[in-house]
Simulated scan of single mutants.
Amino acid sequence: MDLNGLKISVIGAGIGGLTAALVLRERGANVTVLEQANAITEVGAGLQVSPNGMAVLRTLGLEAALQTRAVRGQAVELRDYARGRLVSRLNLGALGDEAPYYFIHRSDLIDILAEAVRAAGVKVRLLQKVETVRPGETPRVVLAHGQEIAADLVIGADGLHSKLRAVLNGTVAPFFTRQVAWRATVPNTVGHGPVAKVHMGPRRHVVSYPLRGGEMVNIVAVQERSGWHEEGWHIADDPENLRGCFSDFEGETKALLANVESVRKWGLFRHPVAPIWHNGHTALLGDAAHPTLPFMAQGAVMAMEDAWVLGDALAKADNIETGLAAYQTRRQARVRRVVDTASKNAGRYHLSAPPVRIAAHLGLTIASTLAPKTMMGHFDWIYRYDVTKDS
Rank of each mutant, 00 (worst) to 15 (best):
N52W: 12
P210I: 04
Q36L: 09
L284Y: 12
Q128F: 06
H281Y: 08
R58D: 15
N241Y: 04
E63H: 08
V222F: 13
P187V: 02
G121K: 06
S9T: 09
V33W: 08
L285A: 06
L24I: 13
G46E: 15
W266Q: 03
K123V: 15
H378L: 13
S368H: 09
H281F: 10
A37K: 15
G16S: 03
A75G: 04
E148A: 09
L351M: 12
R106Q: 06
L168S: 03
K389L: 14
E321A: 14
P372W: 14
E137F: 02
E26Q: 15
P194S: 13
L18A: 04
N241V: 14
G73P: 02
A114W: 00
V207H: 00
R58N: 11
K316R: 15
V56T: 03
V172S: 11
G377F: 12
L78R: 07
I149F: 01
T341D: 11
D238Y: 03
A157H: 02
V207G: 05
Q48K: 01
R334N: 07
F103K: 01
P139T: 05
I112S: 01
V387I: 15
R134M: 08
N52L: 13
F269L: 07
M216N: 08
G16I: 06
P239V: 06
L47S: 05
A70F: 08
E305T: 09
W233K: 00
Q223A: 15
A181Q: 03
E35A: 07
V124R: 00
Q67R: 09
R183P: 09
R27S: 08
P174S: 04
A39T: 12
P174E: 01
R89L: 02
T177R: 10
A150I: 10
V338R: 11
I8C: 02
L256E: 04
V206Y: 02
L310E: 01
Q298N: 10
T171A: 13
N319F: 13
K344N: 12
V167I: 11
G146Y: 00
H199N: 11
R357H: 10
K265Y: 12
G214T: 08
L90C: 00
P139K: 10
E26Y: 09
V10R: 01
R69Y: 01
D97F: 13
E115W: 03
Y383E: 09
E224S: 12
V387K: 03
E321D: 15
M375H: 01
P239F: 02
P294M: 03
K163Y: 00
R264F: 14
G232W: 10
H378P: 00
V76L: 12
D380K: 13
V273K: 04
V180R: 08
A64W: 02
K265S: 05
W277Y: 12
M1C: 10
P202T: 11
K123Y: 04
L127G: 00
I358R: 15
L364P: 01
G299N: 11
L362S: 12
L86T: 13
G44S: 12
A371V: 06
E148H: 05
A184H: 04
L47Q: 06
A94G: 06
T132A: 09
A144N: 07
I219Q: 03
T138V: 14
N218M: 12
D97A: 15
A353C: 03
I320F: 08
R25P: 07
S208Y: 02
